[in-house]
């Protein structure tokens, strides 16, 4: 699924530079969690993270888990340290006012697959 389509579907705001402009369809799977150790158990690539957890450890976890797209739900705002770390790691951060449930529903109906 293309980044531009994801952004449109969930009315998201890209909050960091080049990583969010990647116009590829490499996003095939999604995982929704606020528990970072559960995210660290994922072994499949091409996975995006949908979360309401909005702190620097969200980005750190994505870096370790090879997740290239984080969707921050519930209207939370990424801070400067998160944005800097995401840019250094080539991770796109999207913010949306939608809930985790609504983001998941929208993307599921659009063909993004679950992992389990």
């Amino acid at each position: 699924m293309l980044m531009t389509e994801i952004i449109k579907r969930i009315e998201a705001r890209p909050v960091c530079g080049d990583a969010c402009s990647l116009n590829t369809n490499e996003f095939e799977f999604a995982f929704a969690s606020d528990l970072m150790s559960d995210v660290l158990r994922l072994m499949r690539d091409n996975t995006m993270l949908i979360t309401g957890l909005c702190n620097v450890q969200t980005v750190r976890t994505a870096e370790m888990a090879e997740i290239k797209l984080i969707i921050i739900a519930r209207g939370k705002k990424a801070d400067a340290q998160m944005i800097k770390l995401a840019e250094e790691s080539g991770i796109c951060l999207l913010e949306t006012d939608y809930s985790v449930y609504r983001v998941s529903g929208e993307l599921y109906s659009y063909g993004i697959k679950p992992l389990y």
Binding site: S37, D38, L40, R41, N55, Q57, T61
Partner: peptide, 16 residues
């Protein structure tokens, strides 16, 4: 827990 950890999966994840 507010940082997203403390769910009791740390050591099991290391072992895995």
């Amino acid at each position: 827990r507010e940082m997203g950890f403390g769910a009791g999966m740390g050591l099991p994840n290391i072992k895995k």
